[in-house]
Design a binder for these strands. Structure first.
Lengths: 215, 215
DNA sequence: TAGATTGTTAATCGATTAACAATC
DNA sequence: TAGATTGTTAATCGATTAACAATC
């Protein structure tokens, strides 16, 4: 891998899409694919796809294209999907439960060990075997169970407090669903899912169709 | 508004963040803000902020900055948040219920009229007054109730079928949470929330911290 | 071998940043 | 008036596209 230079975030955000389509191909038993065919599927240009992949190494072969199985495996490694991770969820409302219930994440190696909430009515309940615990126990639980990923599905008012508990107990990455920008130390990776921003963008294009074209 | 040329999607995706911070300021009673102060809050450069806003008109005043109330109102109009919209949700599982329950969307003018599912155990139940109906009735319901926005929170296997019902019944925009790329006619606006792609991006940066810097 | 398709360099395009005159 | 800050043009930077030699 020629990883001397930082790969840009725009490239990184395309990788999961390649990975998804390659998985589809793999399941269909197709074992060979060209950048041109991938272009048709993903909507990115063939040139862009070749450039993107070459940030990480030469996975293809002239005159042939890419081996689906190999490229899928390589992209999985690049994305860190060859490992597994322990996660917890703060906020056991609908959204927290939705994330806990989503089988796809577990299949990809992300295991939710526990949910946490402050609502006594929720504490003790189970979502698919996953217990909801008191948020007061969260810091201890994280330290004892080798938890790397902290998910935030609380209301925005509590998001920063939760982030601080995560930070203090050694969480390495935060997946944040609250509509707030968290302040945490630079070593912690944050990935935001800002649903309101997504909805407002949709609203913009609904009102300005002439500006819209499939990205 | 000098709207001769298409505004780029990268600009549009920053607007909701401006809007959110301006709302915060408004609630704090602050009525004046400079691009430099906005820069500190949002993390975008002051220059970029001024450029972005000037795509839509000169909302500021030399030597003064921007009037918070006015800018907030203007951005709201640009984003189409001065109107209200009827929406339905296909897929009444946890994720669909989470979206239906989220008060923030309704406050912003997005009203969920009904959820739809094919599971008989869910049909007839109510989420905050919002009834879950049989998905077979969905097309009719949309036509009768002036529904513009269709939300998809089904498993990916059903997403394309739902999209087609939406298309045929006159939906104008689809907010898609299923990990699939929908094929619909060009007049329909699609906004995807691909949670798996977000999680995989987080996973990448967790494994390649040196590539990571707050966007 | 002939055809296909990569890896990679160079050209183009677009987005961000810098700079500053205009002006409140 | 003096200071502040916009709106806007020009400069820079980065990302995408085009092109093609290398080679399977």
């Amino acid at each position: 891998m020629d990883r001397d230079n930082k790969v840009s975030i725009t490239v990184i955000r395309r990788l999961p899409k390649y990975y998804r389509y390659l998985g589809d191909l793999l399941r269909k038993g197709i074992n060979r694919i060209s950048s041109q065919q991938l272009s048709k599927m993903t909507g990115f240009t063939a040139s862009q796809i070749r450039q993107d992949l070459n940030n990480f190494g030469g996975f293809g072969q002239q005159g042939y294209g890419y081996n689906v199985d190999e490229l899928y495996t390589q992209l999985g490694k690049i994305l860190g999907l060859d490992k597994s991770y322990n996660a917890v969820i703060a906020g056991a409302g609908n959204l927290g439960q939705a994330v806990a219930n989503y089988k796809g994440f577990e299949d990809a190696g992300f295991k939710v060990l526990s949910l946490f909430d402050k609502n006594p009515k929720l504490i003790g309940l189970k979502i698919r075997d996953i217990e909801i615990r008191d948020v007061d126990e969260m810091g201890d639980y994280i330290r004892r169970n080798n938890v790397e990923i902290g998910i935030i599905t609380t209301p925005k008012e509590n998001a920063q407090d939760i982030a601080e508990i995560y930070m203090k107990s050694g969480i390495k990455a935060i997946w944040n669903f609250a509509p707030a920008d968290l302040k945490v130390s630079d070593e912690i990776v944050i990935e935001n899912v800002h649903l309101n921003e997504s909805l407002f963008t949709l609203s913009y294009f609904l009102n300005n169709k002439s500006d819209y074209s499939r990205d």
